[in-house]
Design a protein around this nucleic acid. Structure first.
Lengths: 109, 109
DNA sequence: TACCTTTATCGTAATATTGCAATAAATAAA
DNA sequence: TTTATTTATTGCAATATTACGATAAAGGTA
């Protein structure tokens, strides 16, 4: 049917997959990398930096903002984006907790 | 268009987004969690464990296998799945490297 | 006010994803 | 060989995602 059956999964499973989904596009990875690289806000140079059309970048920014990875404040005619540090840390922590396991059985199959 | 423009991104950006995409579904999170929980292989009880139809689970397993998160070996009529430890660690490392940053500027906006 | 700049939204086309019934494939057991 | 069991594949319908042109919205400037 094309729609995920969220109701049969736990809160944690749904949350983890949502966080992962936000990172599941190279443009959104690139946006986050750029924000960390310049170590401050970004005010509109993402379109030339990344090479997608302005509406497309706007859409990706909206998605990152929806999940809480970034926040944006209006500054004159432009909007200033930066990492939302608190949310970034909490989502990173969730992913770390999930990923930081090791299967002690090296060759079970 | 609906198709991601992979050619304008770096190898790393594409790889990271692919890894994230594999985790971007609660069923695949649940499968991996289950594999870690039982701490060994799983031979076909995932359908009842998760609650999706058998072809759907098979599809998710295929995707996890394609990315290298799990591996499966035929064992009689059934197939035995487990975490692919080496790949798991290397993909985890990539995600860690990407996620383990902090923006020193707390409130730039 | 009129104009410019910047970002968001709308509408739409192309493609991808999710889910499952039906069925095939593979192997074990009778 | 026939039958049962388990998993993979096919085909399809419903929905989601990606991308962008056109345009709106918001605020600054002349």
């Amino acid at each position: 049917m094309g729609v995920t059956k969220t109701e049969i999964f736990t809160e944690e499973q749904n949350r983890l997959s949502q966080i992962a989904k936000a990172l599941a596009h190279p443009a959104r990875i690139a946006i986050l990398q750029h924000l960390f690289k310049i170590n401050s806000c970004v005010c509109g140079d993402l379109v030339e930096e990344i090479g997608l059309a302005q509406p497309t970048i706007s859409q990706h920014l909206k998605e990152l903002k929806r999940l809480g990875f970034i926040k944006g404040t209006v500054e004159g005619t432009s909007v200033c984006y930066c990492i939302d540090t608190d949310n970034w840390r909490s989502m990173r922590k969730m992913l770390f907790n999930f990923l930081d396991r090791d299967n002690p059985i090296e060759n079970c199959c």
